[in-house]
Design a protein around this nucleic acid. Structure first.
Lengths: 215, 215, 215, 215
DNA sequence: TATGAATGAGGATTCATTCAT
DNA sequence: TATGAATGAATCCTCATTCAT
């Protein structure tokens, strides 16, 4: 490839990245409908029209963020789950990873929820919606497999793994979500660390098969 | 009061109620920004201008719904928690109430989350925001008191009651929220009943002080 | 009807009229795509949003003009064609009416042609397009009936009346259209009167069954 | 000329041709304002920026098409009008040529009309507009000369030749135009052939000096 | 008090044109 | 010379809010 062409390709990739970055911030803060593409363009340092060279519409830009961040998340989650660990420890690590990921990338988060919004989905090709749904299903599937393993090994109560995965997933999301949406309450960010640990341990206790005393 | 005046007062109350009803439906379905006051007025059977006789702005109408439904919820929750029950059973009832309340009033729900977003709602009087926040804090406080009682009685692990209340609250919200936002996943509405029961029992198990074997 | 309500209704009708008037002018001058609704609103003396209280979209406003003017034209044409005249004279009158109508309402004209435009039609409900098409067909039908009468009476050559109506219609449109589109040519507006007369007589001569010499 | 240079010149001419070809198609289909230069570039197989190496603006590209096709038309018309024929036959041939030209090049046509609209085209150099106007005037002049000849010979009525040329021109354009814009009416393309013949004969009859019976 | 017509700022999207490579 | 990415002005349409009746 000629150096000039290479430079141009790089610049394009850079613009793409900056747009996603800016859009993530704005969508996160304002939600899909209230988000303003003027602001996205300005934050990304490009002209408004440029957005449309990279994404066909506001809705597709939105989905691109969901998808992009979902892929990063999935990849990191897989790295965390080294196969030799016992199931309980895997779950504990996955939970901590999830929490840490959120603390370090607070704006990756809110956005998970919004795919539900009919106002957004209505404007999207079915295929895009399916893509994002499948992405998050894969993450849930990872959890379900750990639980299945634990059930087989007799360390977890005999519940439906997929259902349990949903409950765990839900707990984690719920805590983060609640914390986000109630910044004034007594539950402060400084304590969030501990609250999260406690919640994880609470759920793991609830999930574990009680060890028979004396055995 | 003169009969004419009385009739007028009744009619006003009726309009107020119809507007709240209609707005709840629309805000729930579309979210704050995408919600359209034309539709609210039409559903309520009043003229658009009439909305402004009852509420100063879209945002205040929104907050009025949060507040109104919160009050109803609080009242019902208090009715459920008759004081003679053991703490564990109180928590179980509160949880089931919460779930049942959601199943019967699905549109009461989504709306809890949105108060967070200052950027969307815009400039609300501090007092309004505080009112809603305080309302939900009172609900949490009810849970916290049950847990405190349980800790005192030795049936719950010795955790900070407020923190535990948050975790429970969060779990319940998270499950409902997840179910709402992932209608395509394997976790179907028909199973939600059971999932919710399982989740509650899981958390209560995690919260309970393990009984000494043999005793 | 209460006087206040009546006044409001009148004002609405007045706005409707002013919008149609302004839109006609702008659409005529610029064509559908290039026409600017900002300018229409300004000329009509209403806010831009007001346009949308009366017409759902640019395309529907456009069709409303076609339809409105078509109806006026049809009505006037019928008035001109008093039934007792001989066919040849009826045609002559219809022709002169058409020409006069154009001279007095130059902006009624151009617009006839544009319904063809796919860019416009594509955005319109089928029913609207059909309405306009039917309207103009009725005008053609009026001409065809005169010709049919003349053919029966033996004063016109034995051609298909519908076809002949098309040719006449076409001639008239063509002359006006050409004159509109070539303002710089030697054929000046001042002469248009005479050109139009000459064209009409030329076509009527061509249409007439030659009278037998000596009779 | 060096072979390399020659090749480059050829390639340029080829691009020029392809751009005109593509632009004709798009302008014809969509009209001036709605036409999209992105599509033109793609159809022509060149980059969008390349269009501006050949034409200074959208408007100039448009005018180039008018001019280019006008020149082709003029050349062919002259070939058709071999001087030895009687005027009536010349007119008949010119008419048929015009019609055939349209049937074979339907997209050459629509475009004639649009030069008029200064508001749409915007600021074109006077010289460009004059060029196109002059081109079409020359075609009209050809017709006028035939009529003048016929008037001198006594086979045509004594009318102003330029005026008659306009009427003929107009009739032809009108029929084609009407047919274009009313594809749904009863006048179908299959019959257009015959309609056109009938129209020509009608006009020629109207133009002809009646032969005195018995002489 | 209730109405609903009018408003006009705001926002998504398009596209002719420019210009660095 | 050709490219195609970037630009940003232009424009259609929406909708919360106002206000005359």
């Amino acid at each position: 490839m000629a150096p000039a062409s290479q430079r141009r390709t790089q610049k394009k990739a850079e613009s793409h990245r900056r747009i996603l970055e800016a859009a993530k911030e704005v969508f996160f803060r304002d939600g899909f409908t209230a988000a303003n593409l003027d602001e996205v363009a300005e934050k990304a340092g490009v002209a408004k029209g440029t957005l449309y060279r990279y994404f066909d519409s506001k809705a597709e830009l939105y989905v691109a963020i969901l998808s992009h961040n979902g892929k990063i998340f999935e990849q990191k989650l897989r790295e965390v789950l080294s196969p030799s660990l016992p199931p309980m420890e895997k779950l504990r690590r996955a939970s901590h990873f999830y929490f840490r990921h959120y603390v370090e990338n607070p704006d990756y988060f809110q956005i998970f929820w919004a795919i539900e919004n009919q106002a957004v989905i209505g404007e999207l090709p079915e295929s895009l919606v399916d893509e994002v749904t499948a992405l998050w299903d894969r993450n849930l599937q990872l959890l379900a497999e750990i639980i299945e393993e634990g059930v087989r090994d007799g360390v977890f109560l005999d519940h439906d793994p997929w259902e349990m995965a949903n409950i765990l997933w839900t707990l984690a999301n719920g805590i983060i979500q609640t914390e986000r949406s109630t910044p004034r309450r007594r539950l402060r960010r400084r304590q969030l660390d501990r609250v999260f640990d406690d919640a994880i341990e609470l759920v793991l206790r609830g999930l574990a098969r009680p060890t028979v005393a004396g055995s």
